[in-house]
Simulated scan of single mutants.
Amino acid sequence: MVAQQIRTCDVLDERLLERLREVPREDFVPKNLRAAAFADTPIPIGRGQVMFAPMLDARLVNALALTPDDRVLEVGTGTGYVTAVMAGLARLIHSVEIIPEFKLRAAVSLAAQGVANAVLEVGDAARGFGRHAPYDAILVSGALPLGPDAHFRESLAVGGRLVVIVGVSPAMEARLIVREDADRFSERSLFETDVPVLINAPQPKRFYF
């Protein structure tokens, strides 16, 4: 997976690549779909949600440029796979999941891997989650059609990075937002993609004639 899929999309951070080798992705995939664990395709996990393809997971985490001292907010725990990957790269992961059964299953999988620095919570973080702010990095694992609410930006520490997918299918793009100082943010487009919309994310207004 690392050699054939991830290195080919310019994910070259050796700490991240090593972590991707260490975490057994197949242990986080629904049992009936384990044969597809390393396929370059999203995997359905129930309730209309998916586990992103390995390449997309890697590119999103790579853009965060995590360091060992970082405190991270993950919006959308899902299976816990990305949680486990980031837990080996940062000091502490706060992961918020709106679907209680997903949180419970992810907790079991993370415990089986010995991950002790990830705190899982049930909650709706579609408009931000400032409970443990400030964060050094935030990853939103679902699309926000209107872009991130201001609460996401304000929850970043100075120097903090927010990676989010913005837009409406099929025209979505991953973006990196960096808090340069108390009042100034920079933003750049990373790549195009297409993923499910985050549950309860604000939607653009629709006009009917």
Rank of each mutant, 00 (worst) to 15 (best):
A118W: 08
G142S: 07
A107F: 04
A126N: 05
H151I: 12
R153H: 10
S141H: 02
G123T: 09
L144M: 11
S109I: 00
S109P: 01
F129P: 00
A133S: 14
H151R: 14
V119H: 06
L139P: 01
D124S: 11
R127Y: 08
A112Y: 00
L146Y: 06
R127T: 13
N117H: 10
D124W: 12
H151K: 13
F129E: 03
S141D: 08
F129S: 08
P145S: 04
V108G: 07
G114P: 04
A116G: 00
A125K: 02
A116I: 02
Y135C: 05
Y135S: 05
L146N: 12
L120A: 07
R127G: 09
V122N: 13
R131H: 10
L139G: 02
F129H: 13
G128L: 11
A150R: 11
G128S: 08
Q113E: 10
N117G: 04
A125D: 04
G114I: 03
R131D: 11
P134V: 12
V119T: 09
V108E: 15
P145A: 04
A106I: 08
V119D: 05
A112M: 13
L120K: 10
A106W: 04
A111S: 14
A137D: 07
Q113T: 00
A143K: 02
V115K: 01
Y135T: 09
F152C: 01
D149N: 14
G147D: 10
L110A: 08
L139S: 06
L144G: 02
V119M: 08
N117K: 09
Q113Y: 02
V115H: 01
S141E: 06
L139K: 04
V115E: 01
E121C: 09
Q113R: 07
A118D: 07
A126K: 02
N117F: 08
G147H: 11
G123K: 02
L144F: 06
G114H: 03
A118S: 11
V140K: 01
H132F: 15
N117M: 06
P148W: 04
I138N: 00
D149T: 08
A133Y: 08
A133H: 06
D124Y: 11
L144Q: 12
P145T: 05
R153C: 12
L110R: 01
F129M: 13
G147I: 15
D149R: 06
A107C: 06
A107E: 15
V140R: 00
L120E: 07
H132C: 04
A150S: 14
P134Y: 12
F152N: 00
N117I: 02
A143C: 10
A126V: 02
G123V: 13
D149C: 10
G114F: 05
V115N: 01
H132E: 11
H132P: 01
V119R: 12
N117Y: 10
L120Q: 09
A143V: 06
A116V: 03
G130T: 07
G123Q: 06
R105F: 09
A137H: 03
A118K: 03
E121H: 12
L139M: 14
L139W: 08
